[in-house]
Amino acid sequence: MEKEYILHKWLNDSATSEELEYLKTSPEYNTLIKIAVISSGLEAPESNSEANFKTITSNLINNKREVKKLIPFASLLKVAAVLALLLVGYLYISSLDTEVQTQIAEKQNILLPDNSEVIINANSAISYNKKKWSQQRELKLTGEAYFKVTKGNTFSVKTSLGIVTVLGTQFNVYSRDNLFNIECYEGLVSVAFNDTLIKLPAGSRLSIENGVLVKHDISILSFPNWTINESSFENALLSTVLQELKRQYPIKLITKFNDVNQRYTGSFSHNDLNLALKSICDPLHLAYTIEEESITIYDKESP
């Protein structure tokens, strides 16, 4: 074992000459040393160093070319991707409908792309597509709005209760719950309701209540009263009138009267709650009390 240790020491060039001599005294180790010495004198074939380097560099040049080609292409792709995304985003956003909504006691005037004017009454909404407007004048309405349409191609107002179509006129559309009112102030309006089509000339009003059609010839007015902050009714259900009152004033209504089906003809102001309540209650022999924002309406005879 000691000899083995010295052998390794010698193979690592750190054995002393005495140790080597000692090792050589063993014929076995003498042979090993001889083999080791002879092996040291051997050499591997000469490698083709320059040819290999050429292969390597040509390989690297090819790689480089690929890299050079790829980088501008990749950055171009990135730019293209961002542009495409922006374009898609823009197209998507511009294809979305424009929506205008009003809150309780709020009215809004808007101008459509063709300069047609819309006045939206409280708690109503319209939506239309700006992009397609030049080809198709069409909007959706929930609630009530007054339209002053400039002349042009067909202008349609779609509601859940029916479609109102005009060419260029002034008209008011009211579509709430089961009540569908159209008042035409100028020109001619056609109303599609269920499967029927009704032509409505200027100065007339169409009223559809719970699917029953009532046609009135009225209106000396040239615009709906609500646009000058007054709501007018003719033979309207009291509940409809009170609903409108709740839309024009942010109030809570408690009703304690017997005859729910009373009808009301008249108007109330949007600017003075007291006056408005009086206008509604007095003709119907009703009384009311105001407690902060809560209003109770009851029969006069039984307070």
Partner: peptide, 20 residues
């Protein structure tokens, strides 16, 4: 380093082409 590495491979496999 190339010759040293080449020989190292050659000692392992004895194949010059493979060493290249």
């Amino acid at each position: 380093l190339n010759k040293e590495i080449w020989r190292f491979i050659y000692y392992k496999c004895g194949d010059e082409a493979q060493a290249d």
